[in-house]
Nucleic acid binder design. Structure first.
Lengths: 101, 101
DNA sequence: TTATTATATAAGCATTTACTTATATAAAAG
DNA sequence: CTTTTATATAAGTAAATGCTTATATAATAA
């Protein structure tokens, strides 16, 4: 878990996913990484059990896995970071995420 | 910080150092790594500000850095792990650490 | 002084990592 | 059907990582 969160980009991905379910295209918008790079990180996070994935139509949503053995520790770590919520709300104001609902 | 703790061996080193000040030779005894490998990890931990070093005669002691920006989060992480204290006490019972006092 | 002990550093190397570009798959739309 | 959109995967690659062995440094002991 610590190794997975030890990567800057993955930690950022987890911050977003922790706030609320995200689909890949949303993450692509807010994180400065190519779509394949994001998919690859998501796979590692999923393989590590840190997130769960769920297909909804053509989108795949990822959400924080509360059942993970270290879920509460992860939560503690993620909420110790500078909030990412503002960026998410900014995104919502721009209507850039609604497309995936 | 998370990247530094994301390595199994470094995390273990931090567990010991968190319990109490340790010199390199003590860590060499309890962790299955060569002396140079341990020194190299300690340097990374020091460069990252996670530990402080202090020379005492021929030994160099490392201690947890309470002043680090993420000290309390680190503390939370380290104390969330299975206790290492038993191994330390075992070591003390064997008298293998006293030599460094 | 020389020898010993504790630790650090350097160089080399195999492995892992995190990306890139190109392509495949899967679902929805036309 | 074909096209478009969303996502995943594959292959390649440069850089980072974590060790190894050998050697340097620093303090103490003889």
């Amino acid at each position: 878990m610590l190794k997975l969160l030890g990567d800057q980009n993955r930690l950022r991905i987890m911050q977003f996913i922790y706030e609320r379910e995200c689909c890949v295209c949303e993450l692509v918008e807010v994180i400065d990484l190519s779509q394949p790079a994001i998919s690859q990180h998501l796979r590692k996070l999923r393989d590590g059990g840190l997130v769960r994935e769920q297909r909804k139509g053509s989108w795949v949503f990822y959400r924080f896995n509360d059942d993970h053995q270290t879920a509460s520790l992860m939560e503690h770590i993620i909420t110790s970071l500078p909030r990412i919520k503002d960026e998410l709300e900014q995104l919502e104001r721009e209507g850039r995420n609604v497309i995936c609902d």
